[in-house]
Design a protein around this nucleic acid. Structure first.
Length: 758
DNA sequence: TTCGTTACTTAGCATGAACGTC
DNA sequence: GACGTTCATGCTAAGTAACGAA
């Protein structure tokens, strides 16, 4: 591995997170939306750029750059990335909406290069020869019988038995072996003896996702219930009875009245526009100004309802719970290839107001109600098809076993397709997840070669190749996302690596005693701010200067590059390699290295878990997984501190008592007094341990204030690393993964031994 | 090559359930 | 058992990336 892959150790502004947000607020207000119409200028930019490459510069300070430029060939027929720059420029100063402000900038430990190790498990991608060839003929498929049983081993015959167990209704899968029975009550629920180990079976060959699929279809949102007559809407101070459609949409707004959303101009504008579409012509003519609408009575009604729900008796709550359980049992599972599998989201999204993240241009728009006529059902031909509600029909019933979804519909805000799919614990999701980590492990084997190649490419004569190489360096070093192009005006203005603009970087030849520092400041996925100051290699720095030269702030940094070009290149370097594999690889390798570095085998369990959380945290920082500090954070820290103080007092007391007991034992050399000393010693020890546990908890919580560990744990960290760590250090797996996570990672919990290496 | 479409993963937040404390 | 806090889960938006048609 090349030397420059320490993650975040280079973030020299580790303290900036807490005080920088206001400082940058204006900057974001300004940046907001100014990129519109950006893309249409890409071509102009490109030609401008090629021209500049051949132009002589008399400015001395540009001499080196010019030399460099002259060396470069034009990057041929690259994609235009230049649509809306003018518009963006226009809007640049007009927009002053606030921006969500988050930033990273924590110091975190390095990633060290590791020698390649042999793959412990076969990569699913490379394992095709091991896969069972399954008959492609859907029509022939008999559910609940195993077609390929003849060629199966004894183990598989045993499994068949399990499978038949599994598909019996009402049975829940059981947690993995080794799990401590912490919830005795729940254990009373019926559960099969063994869980289906799909990971011990062969996989389908290319494309086919299932042979048999049967389900009950989606659960629709409950119909609208008109408000009671005493709940009133006022317009311009006067009560006004709304038509059912208009009233429903008004309730959506009134339910959000306490939310900041409803104060935003775009939200209000979008809402009002869509609301008017639902009004009768009479309403439309009367209600012309949202500011004259008074939803407060409606809002109070919903608050009271919510309170009433909280105040329900146990019996009432139980009744609701039972009803939900009944719906879950009826609609929450499907049969896929002889196995009963849990569905992730079997409920159709209810109508409401669209809540985009960040400064979304469509926030407040009406998300319409989905009807059976909007629904496409996917199931096998020979299954019992789901029946639409009486008097309705499905848009379509199809039988496509090359996809994993059961139900789909098109939403009206962005026109994108929504799906109902299986739970992460399902075979179909698990296999994919496992495969993802195997691809990342294959990257581990060739990452040195790839790194040395992109370093060479920094010197390439072709601009396109240089840009690709620098982008890849960022993706690798900083775990940036790929950065697909987005449709202007359709979504919030966010970027990833390939879509970075000049305005998102500031180059500092020298900063805080370090050379060649790049300051990143942009909004990434979910409009989460990425803020980082990173020293880079000189050559990267020089290239960036070159890429930024003669460009406007709103121009693309990598004007010859997009994710498609980058991924095509990556595909040539390694089968299955895409930009996002780097994130998975770097996250997982960081966890493994951090665990090796931080875990002290002498530590007790809470201290080891703190080490684990710190390792997890290093990854979350690398991937910029942030969260808003919990609302109760300060208070809960205070409470914890109170507990710590009390425990400290208890410790003083315990010490005093031990001293007294010792003194007694010295004077009265009696067995009874000796025993008392022992007892006091133990008590002291106990208090010490409790205090330590509390202090560890406080440290952990404080360090975690603005960092979300869940996302990396769930999506980026090869679970086998964690399982192996638990096994090696005798940590119960429940301390690391909760029940849902254990279900998702059942494959890893079952297969990883303590010597597993990513 | 570009563009639109589709399928799927990744993401943070709101809510409600579970838990601990008194 | 009531209450406050913490944690798990559900929800759905927002990404990535593959694919096929023009």
């Amino acid at each position: 591995m090349s030397g420059d892959h320490s993650h975040n150790d280079s973030q020299i502004d580790s303290g900036s997170r807490h005080n920088d947000s206001h400082k940058h607020k204006d900057k974001y207000k300004d940046k907001e939306h100014k990129h519109k119409d950006h893309k249409k200028d890409k071509e102009r930019e490109k030609s401008k750029y090629s021209n500049s490459e051949h132009r002589d510069s008399s400015e001395k300070k540009h001499r080196d750059k010019d030399k460099e430029r002259q060396k470069l060939k034009d990057g041929s027929s690259d994609k235009q990335k230049d649509k809306h720059k003018e518009k963006r420029k226009e809007e640049r100063s007009s927009d002053d909406r606030p921006k969500k402000e988050k930033q990273n900038g924590f110091a975190s430990p390095h990633i060290k290069s590791e020698p390649d190790s042999d793959d412990f498990y076969h990569s699913p991608k490379l394992e095709k020869s091991l896969k069972r060839e399954r008959d492609d003929d859907d029509g022939d498929y008999k559910p609940k019988k195993i077609k390929t049983e003849d060629d199966r081993s004894e183990k598989k015959a045993k499994k068949r038995k399990q499978e038949e167990e599994d598909i019996k209704p009402k049975k829940k899968t059981k947690d993995k072996k080794g799990e401590v029975a912490t919830d005795g009550k729940k254990k009373a629920k019926k559960e099969p003896e063994e869980k289906w180990k799909w990971w011990e079976e062969e996989r389908y060959t290319d494309g086919v996702k299932w042979k048999f699929l049967e389900h009950k279809g989606p659960v629709f949102a409950p119909p609208y219930e008109p408000l009671p007559s005493n709940v009133k809407f006022y317009y311009d101070g006067k009560h006004m009875k709304l038509s059912p459609n208009a009233e429903e949409v008004a309730t959506f707004f009134s339910k959000m009245l306490d939310h900041e959303y409803t104060t935003k101009d775009i939200f209000r504008k979008n809402f009002f526009k869509d609301w008017r579409k639902e009004m009768t012509s009479e309403e439309k003519s009367k209600i012309t100004d949202l500011n004259k609408c008074d939803f407060s009575n409606m809002s109070e009604y919903f608050k009271a309802q919510s309170e009433a729900r909280k105040a329900m008796t146990k019996e009432e709550k139980l009744k609701i719970k039972e009803e939900n359980e009944r719906i879950l049992q009826e609609y929450g599972f499907c049969i896929m290839d002889n196995h009963k599998e849990r569905i992730a989201n079997f409920r159709i999204e209810p109508p409401g107001l669209f809540r985009g993240r960040g400064d979304h241009p469509k926030m407040g728009m009406l998300k319409r109600r989905i009807r059976p006529e909007d629904i496409i059902i996917n199931c096998s031909k020979d299954s019992k098809h789901p029946t639409p509600p009486p008097g309705t029909k499905w848009k379509e019933v199809r039988h496509d076993n090359k996809v994993t979804w059961l139900v789909s519909w098109t939403e009206n805000i962005q026109g994108s397709i929504k799906y109902i799919m299986l739970n992460p614990s399902s075979r179909i999701k698990g296999e994919k997840d496992w495969q993802k980590y195997e691809t990342a492990r294959r990257l581990k084997k060739c990452v040195d070669r790839i790194r040395s190649q992109y370093r060479d490419d920094w010197k390439s004569k072709e601009m396109k190749i240089r840009q690709r190489a620098v982008a890849l360096y960022f993706i690798d070093k900083l775990a940036l996302r790929a950065g697909n192009e987005k449709e202007e005006g359709e979504t919030a203005d966010t970027v990833g690596c390939c879509s970075l603009r000049v305005e998102h970087l500031t180059l500092h030849p020298e900063m805080d005693g370090q050379e060649f520092v790049v300051e990143f400041d942009f909004l990434g996925k979910d409009s989460i701010r990425y803020y980082n100051k990173v020293p880079v290699e000189k050559r990267v720095f020089k290239n960036l200067q070159l890429f930024m030269e003669d460009k406007e702030p709103e121009d693309d940094l990598f004007d010859r590059l997009n994710t498609s070009i980058l991924n095509k290149h990556l595909q040539e370097l390694m089968d299955g390699l895409t930009a996002k594999v780097f994130r998975t690889y770097n996250a997982s390798i960081t966890l493994q290295q951090q665990l090796n570095e931080l875990t002290n085998s002498e530590d007790n369990v809470p201290a080891k878990i703190l080490s684990y959380n710190r390792a997890n945290r290093a990854v979350a920082i690398l991937c910029n997984h942030q969260r808003a500090p919990p609302k109760t954070f300060e208070k809960s820290m205070q409470n914890l501190q109170t507990k710590i103080d009390a425990k400290k007092e208890q410790l003083v007391e315990a010490k005093r008592e031990l001293k007294g007991a010792k003194a007694d034992a010295k004077v009265r050399k009696d067995e009874k007094f000796k025993k008392a000393v022992e007892a006091k010693k133990k008590a002291l020890q106990r208090v010490e341990e409790q205090l330590m546990k509390l202090e560890v908890q406080a440290t952990d919580r404080e360090e975690n204030k603005q960092i979300a560990l869940g996302t990396s744990k769930l999506n980026y960290l090869d679970p086998r690393i964690s399982v192996a760590w638990c096994k090696k250090f005798g940590i119960p797996i429940e301390k690391i993964y909760n029940k849902t996570q254990r279900e998702k990672f059942a494959w890893a919990i079952d297969m990883a031994e303590k010597d597993y290496e990513f």
